[in-house]
Design a protein around this nucleic acid. Structure first.
Length: 424
RNA sequence: GGAGGAGUGGCAGAGUGGUCGAUUGCACCUGUCUUGAAAACAGGAGUCUGGGCAACCGGACCGUGAGUUCGAAUCUCACCUCCUCCGCCA
């Protein structure tokens, strides 16, 4: 959500933003509705002022005067009621429009209609060459009894899975490693709810758009990311400037219906309905420079993790058409997947300025004592089982076993290799 | 799930139909006093929003939303949350 004053004063910027993001939005309509809203509001407030004035005098009035005053107020009240109903109608439209105003993308965001036009910003690592034909994670993990898709779908339906044996242990090792790593960087570790109210999803901007991708029961929803609960944590609060920036590393199960993705990644662990994720969330003071600084920082944290894990990756600068409604700028990190001979997304780092915190009402008192909305950012730290598949594919060896990345060995009880050899 | 009780400003805590946006205490800010600080005394201070260059003026806000009334923090209803007791449960 943006400031209505800002929208009134800069309708052209909103138009440019909508165009760049390829999001249809009628600013002129919003401005017109807003004008009508203020007009009716003024009439209502004038009536209320009169009502307040007469009500204040009614006690001292004589009996005869009082009857007259009450009678005249009755009329004012009727008028008021009509106007209030009118305003309520206007507000419905106004609120719906306000929730759909796109945030302004940064200058550095490239033009582009969709994900095919994202720009590769950097690459890291050497794409592995194998002296044997590498297997994809599905075949390899099934051979090693690391995964059971058959019983997975029997139990959980399409895209269901069981992770087993050392793959299960590997996943838990990742969590230990990630939480400790980010805690050492000053992030506050949290395990956050996945089960959230509708308001939480509205706050972080996943609703009202995106309803189709969420599992829900009445007002209870399963969040697709820990960001939702983590952002809602401070909703309706006034923070002090000293406690900013606030850095949180939040782990949670994530649920996505993957509506519209039925044809994509129908097999394997790349795209599943239920997975786990550690998310970095940062709240900082209301300054573009600070937002940019922490955006680069949380991106770097994840890239360095990928380097520690030894997984080749590249960083994409996301183009306008692939940006979400509230995002100002976004980087995706994609890990090399040998079996697909291409990179697949493992991280998504974006900043929002005060788009989310306006909805969530998260403010702080600045040095002048003025209340301001904080800025928010987030990035994946690690998401499994997708990250597990990247490790397993990149670290597979000729005999069919999988080498454990050095940094994870301490969390694997010292094990350096997992799986049994099935080839020589 | 059942039975009771409660939600007021940063915190504590008055207020049960009419200058209550809200007594008071603590905390906070500014003066006076002091070499400085503390204490004491005096004063100030909420948020959102519309208008105005401004001083200032109007509206809204006592968990949330409806309602009763000329008038609601105060009465009614629904919902949310918390507390106590019982039941169930990893």
């Amino acid at each position: 959500m943006l400031d209505i004053k800002f929208i009134r004063e800069n309708p052209d910027l909103i138009k440019l933003a909508a165009t760049k993001k390829h999001i249809p939005f009628d600013v002129d309509k919003l401005v017109a509705v807003d004008q009508k809203r203020l007009e009716v509001l003024k009439q209502i407030e004038a009536s209320r002022a009169e009502q307040n004035k007469v009500s204040d005098g009614i006690q001292q009035a004589s009996v005869a005067e009082r009857a007259m005053m009450i009678e005249s107020m009755r009329k004012v009240k009727e008028e008021l009621k009509k106007k209030e109903d009118e305003l309520e109608e206007i507000m419905k439209t106004w609120r719906a429009l306000m929730l759909s105003v796109p945030n302004i993308p940064d200058m550095s965001v490239p033009e582009g209609k969709d994900d095919t036009e994202n720009v590769e910003a950097s690459t890291w690592g050497t794409i592995p060459t194998f002296s044997f034909t590498p297997l994809d994670h599905i075949e390899l993990m099934e051979k090693q009894n690391f995964v059971d898709f058959e019983r997975g779908t029997k139990t959980a339906g399409f895209r269901g899975y069981f992770l087993k044996n050392d793959a299960a242990i590997l996943e838990m090792a990742i969590w230990q490693y990630v939480m400790a790593r980010w805690q050492a960087k000053g992030f506050e570790p949290m395990l956050v709810p996945s089960l959230v109210r509708r308001e939480a999803l509205l706050g972080s901007g996943y609703l009202p758009q995106g309803e189709d991708d969420l599992y829900k029961d009445g007002n209870d929803y399963l969040a697709g990311t820990g960001e939702v609960a983590t952002m809602f944590y401070h909703s309706d609060e006034v923070l002090s400037e000293e406690e900013l920036p606030k850095k949180i590393i939040a782990w949670s199960p994530c649920f996505r219906k993957e509506a519209g993705s039925h044809g994509k990644d129908v097999k394997g662990l790349i795209r599943v309905h239920e997975f786990y994720k550690c998310e970095q969330v940062v709240l900082c003071v209301a300054s573009h420079e600070e937002s940019v600084k922490y955006h680069e920082e949380i991106t770097k944290h994840s890239e360095e993790m990928m380097e520690e894990l030894g997984i080749p990756y590249h960083r994409l600068l996301i183009c306008g058409g692939d940006l979400g409604l509230g995002q100002v700028k976004k980087y995706d990190i994609e890990a090399w997947m040998p079996s697909q001979n291409k990179y697949r997304e493992t991280h998504s780092a974006s900043y929002f300025h005060d788009f989310q915190t306006r909805r969530l009402n998260i403010r702080y008192k600045d040095k002048e004592g003025k209340l301001r909305y904080v800025h928010s950012l987030n990035n994946t730290a690690a998401a499994t089982p997708r990250l597990v598949t990247a490790i397993i594919e990149n670290y597979q060896q000729a005999d069919g076993t999988i080498k454990v990345p050095d940094v994870l060995v301490p969390y694997m009880g010292g094990k350096t290799v997992i799986g049994k050899p099935f080839r020589s």
